[in-house]
């Protein structure tokens, strides 16, 4: 089946003013590759500051003006140029953002879902979308501050479902929700995927992501360090040491922290970004490490787990 979205060697960097008037280029995402097929939920998992949200903005073509994007993005077999991104965002590619702050605080919910359209068809679509997520017609005339956290999340998903999207990008859709509500919200994304759409789920919550994702890509300091089937993760078949660390940091897996912190943009050297914190670090890890296939997944590590050295 033709993939809905294919991202190849995507890099995003920002121009910043360094000392004086000297401009420096600050890389935030490097050589990112990702494929999403119809009916698939692909989770991008990483801690905050790893550049996850920028990936979403890059695909949608709404990066800030001082950013540069390189690499290839293909949507439904055609290159996703800035012009095409402008045409398809909001209809074929939709974003489901984090929370209520993404709704205009002074506009009622209904017009926000309809995006200014006033025709009967748009009204019908917004009503159907709200109903699908258990929200009544009266929600249309509420202001965002009158919504509860869970309601706001369902309204945001309804803005996506009011269209018939081919690709849904969910940027951290669950923080602030209790486990049950979060599960229900993720269930809605699974439904959208089962309806034939591709879903890109951006999250920091590996455990929650695994409950609905088909594929998981692990993000560290702007690089994908591992991509594999979700089944591999649940089976404990992890490839990259960072993924292992992330896994072990989960409460039910020992709650084990590792020392150090993720390097910020511009602090990454030429080699593996995780090397300074890696328990298995070797001298050769400080030179560039290529992204390679390994047992049905991809990994960016010289000495991945499960590979005999």
């Amino acid at each position: 089946m033709e993939p809905i979205l294919q991202v190849k060697d995507l890099s995003i960097s920002f121009t910043q003013y360094g000392r004086g008037t000297r401009q420096v280029l600050l890389p935030v995402i490097q050589d990112l590759s990702l494929t999403i097929r119809p009916g698939q939920v692909v989770a991008v998992v990483g801690s905050s500051g790893s550049g996850k949200s920028l990936l979403a903005h890059g695909i949608l073509g709404i990066l800030p003006y001082n950013s540069h994007m390189a690499g290839e993005i293909t949507f439904l077999g055609q290159p996703l140029t800035p012009k095409r991104a402008e045409a398809v965002r909001g209809t074929e590619i939709v974003l489901v953002p984090q929370g209520v702050t993404y709704l205009d605080p002074l506009m009622k919910v209904g017009p926000q879902i309809r995006k200014g359209r006033r025709d009967q068809k748009a009204r019908q679509a917004s009503r159907t979308a709200l109903k699908r997520y258990g929200l009544g017609e009266e929600v249309e005339s509420l202001y965002p501050f009158e919504l509860s956290g869970g309601m706001a999340r369902r309204v945001l998903i309804a803005t996506a479902a009011a269209e018939t999207p081919k690709l849904v990008i969910a940027d951290e859709p669950t923080p602030g929700l209790d486990a049950r509500s979060a599960q229900r919200v993720l269930g809605h994304f699974r439904e959208l995927a089962d309806g034939g759409a591709g879903v890109l789920l951006i999250t920091h919550d590996l455990e929650l992501a695994l409950t609905i994702a088909d594929r998981v890509a692990v993000f560290y300091a702007g690089e994908t360090v591992e991509e594999a089937d979700a089944a591999d993760f649940t089976a404990g078949k992890l490839r990259h040491p960072y993924t292992r660390a992330l896994w072990n940091a989960l409460p039910q897996n020992g709650f084990v922290p590792i020392p150090g912190a993720q390097p910020g943009p511009g602090e990454v050297g030429k080699g593996c970004p995780f090397a300074p914190r890696c328990p298995k670090q070797r001298p050769e890890c400080l030179s560039p490490v290529s992204y390679r296939e390994l047992e049905g997944g991809l990994v960016r590590c010289l000495y991945p787990e499960g590979e005999m050295v």
Partner: peptide
Amino acid sequence: ESDYVLFARAGGESAPSIVLRH
């Protein structure tokens, strides 16, 4: 620079519409 303008852009609204509506 607010979240809701970002979301409006992500939803395909044009720049003039964003200024006028939001």
